[in-house]
């Protein structure tokens, strides 16, 4: 334990020393060179010298893996022999992949939309009632819980026990109290996806509420009063005055949650491990790559996820640029 701490301190120290050393040395060499050659070349060279470490590391850890993944997607399970488009043909025909793609689309559409929607309503309402702060604190709790932890909590909500013992799952306990049979919630085809999504919605609603609440606070109260003088009802104030003004924040929240959804993995693993048609692409990739040991198919699925992310990223960056322009 102690030696490990010592080791990490040493690593941190070394990293900082090397960084500073690189900076000082590079500066010194550039200066010497500048004095000798008397040209403007060292000045032009300077930004690249300082960019180099970052560019190098980004290429090493980002660009290279992408190229390698593309390469592996044309190889067999061991990654040794070239198989052409075999993996691609498999991908198009596989039912599990189809289900995963469908599920991913559902997650992508439903989770960001509902989280942002509920978060927005909660943010508006919490500002109008005296117990709003208390309510916000309560809603804020899930934010501090990891996805896996949240899944474990919800496992208890959906829990099913044999019919002759007491139901410890919240939903089934209610059902039994009402006189019905308990149900195996997470195995109900199609709908079980929604039961899984609720977990992420539960967490992300908080995020949406916190950000949107701050945005709403930033609105001018005089503008809202002016609309009240103009005869707008509370509801009209909400969607004609408030929403348009915080639209860009709503989009930020929406895309942020979208990106989180694209990475969803832990909830599915913890709850069902992809059984009963609940798999998503990240999950499938993990299973092929590390459980099934098929590097070719695993890499191909990884590639599909990446291609799925690109449009959203692209759109996000474009929007950010526009915002800067305004």
């Amino acid at each position: 334990m102690f030696s490990q701490v010592l080791q990490s301190i040493l690593v941190v120290f070394l990293a900082v020393t090397i960084s500073i050393g690189y900076f000082v040395a590079a500066n010194w060499i550039l200066k010497l060179w500048g004095e000798k050659s008397n040209s403007s070349l060292p000045e032009k060279f300077k930004p690249w010298v300082f960019l180099f470490p970052a560019l190098f590391l980004v290429s090493l850890y980002l660009i290279y893996p992408i190229i390698e993944t593309v390469r592996l997607s044309f190889y067999n399970n061991s990654g040794r022999s070239f198989v052409g488009l075999d993996n691609y043909i498999w991908l198009l025909g596989d039912d599990e992949v189809k289900v995963a793609v469908r599920n991913n689309f559902m997650w992508l559409f439903i989770v960001p939309t509902i989280s942002t929607g509920i978060g927005l309503v909660a943010a508006v309402l919490a500002d109008r009632v005296w117990w709003g702060t208390f309510a916000k604190t309560l809603i804020f709790m899930p934010m501090a819980i990891s996805f896996v932890g949240a899944s474990v909590i919800w496992k208890f909500v959906y829990d099913l026990r044999p019919i002759d013992v007491d139901q410890i799952g919240l939903l089934n306990a209610i059902l039994v109290k009402l006189g019905s049979e308990p149900m195996a919630w997470i195995t109900i085809p199609f709908w079980n996806n929604f039961f899984l999504m609720i977990i992420l919605i539960w967490i992300q609603t908080v995020f949406a509420m916190v950000i949107l609440s701050a945005a709403l606070r930033g609105l001018s109260s005089e503008v809202i009063e002016a609309s009240r003088m103009d005869g707008a009802s509370e509801f009209q104030i909400f969607y004609k005055i408030m929403i348009p003004q915080i639209l860009s924040t709503i989009m930020v929240v929406w895309t942020t949650i979208t990106i989180i959804v694209l990475k969803v993995f832990d909830i599915v693993v913890t709850m069902t491990n992809g059984q009963w048609d609940t798999g998503v692409l990240a999950n499938l990739m993990f299973n092929w790559m590390f459980v099934g040991g098929d590097f070719g198919r695993g890499s191909l699925i990884a590639l599909i996820i990446m291609i799925g992310v690109i449009p959203i990223m692209f759109w996000n960056i474009k929007r950010l640029r526009q915002e800067e322009l305004i």
Binding site: E222, E225, A226, R228, M229, K240, I241, P244, Q245
Partner: peptide
């Protein structure tokens, strides 16, 4: 407020920032 038949001009103008001048005037 709206039913009192009064109109108010605020110190900060309180124009609707997302609406054009026409829309601002026409809002009510």
């Amino acid at each position: 407020p709206a039913k009192r038949d009064v109109a108010m001009v605020f110190q900060s103008y309180a124009l609707y920032p997302h609406l054009s001048v026409f829309e601002n005037i026409a809002f009510g």
